Amino acid sequence: MNIDFFKKELSDVLSKKRYEHSIRVLETSLSLGKIYNADLNKIALASLLHDYAKEFTREKLLKISKEHFKDETKDYLTNVEILHSYVASYIAKEKFKIDDDEILNAIKFHTTGRKNMSLIEKIVYIADAIEPKRDYPHVEKIRDLALVDLNKAILLEVNKKIEYLIKGDYIIHVNSIEMRNWLLKIS
């Protein structure tokens, strides 16, 4: 894998702020990957590409989502925060010819999570939530937990995310709820 190639591709489509976030997610993911003995190449690709579509226009996100993820996104078409992850996985597959399901799923579910996540998916999911510039209540505790127990870190993160979404009267993606319940069963 040529990490410089993907960094260049990212810098061409993302703002400086979003690009720097992606690099911090990469660094956080790689640190966690070393702790949990995960495939660092897979982590690097998924981390770098996770927000590739984050700054696409709403129209472009809707078009690709409706064409390629119709059933999966039909209830969430008003939420670009969810759609960008699906579209980024599509771009990874179509533009960059990535065919590894673990990488594609880590990109696709980095926002919502899902039950039965692989180690790579868990690492990218939590790295996105705890990269060094993230600043929200309980993030330090989640960061500390991530160093010793990924499942507990993700469970705390998703609990806090769900609380936030409920307080704001936002839709909660079913994948997040299923992930939470799955983590409770296996932890």
Rank of each mutant, 00 (worst) to 15 (best):
Met1Asn: 07
Ile3Thr: 15
Asp4Gln: 14
Phe5Cys: 10
Phe6Gln: 00
Glu9Lys: 07
Glu9Ser: 06
Ser11Gly: 07
Arg18Cys: 09
Ser31Met: 11
Leu32Gly: 02
Lys34Gly: 04
Ile35Leu: 10
Ile35Arg: 08
Tyr36Lys: 10
Asn37Val: 04
Asn37Leu: 06
Asn37Cys: 02
Leu40Arg: 03
Ser47Gln: 01
Asp51Gln: 11
Lys54Asn: 13
Thr57Pro: 10
Thr57Ile: 12
Arg58Ala: 06
Arg58Asp: 14
Lys60Trp: 04
Leu61Met: 09
Leu61Asp: 02
Leu62Ser: 02
Lys63Glu: 15
His68Asp: 09
Phe69Gln: 01
Glu72Lys: 04
Thr73Leu: 04
Asp75Leu: 09
Leu77Asn: 00
Ser89Thr: 00
Tyr90Ile: 00
Ile91Pro: 00
Phe96Leu: 04
Asp100Gln: 05
Asp101Gly: 11
Glu102Lys: 07
Asn105Ile: 03
Phe109Met: 05
Phe109Cys: 03
Ser118Leu: 05
Ile120Ala: 07
Ile123Trp: 01
Val124Leu: 02
Tyr125His: 12
Tyr125Ser: 05
Ala129Cys: 14
Glu131Pro: 03
Asp135Val: 09
Arg143Ala: 07
Asp144Ala: 12
Asp149Gly: 07
Asp149Arg: 06
Ala153His: 08
Ile154Thr: 02
Leu156Arg: 08
Glu163Thr: 03
Tyr164Asp: 03
Tyr170Gly: 05
Ile171Asn: 13
His173Val: 10
Val174Leu: 09
Ser176Asn: 11
Arg180Val: 08
Leu183Asn: 06
Leu184Gln: 15
Lys185Ala: 10
Lys185Met: 14
Ile186Pro: 14
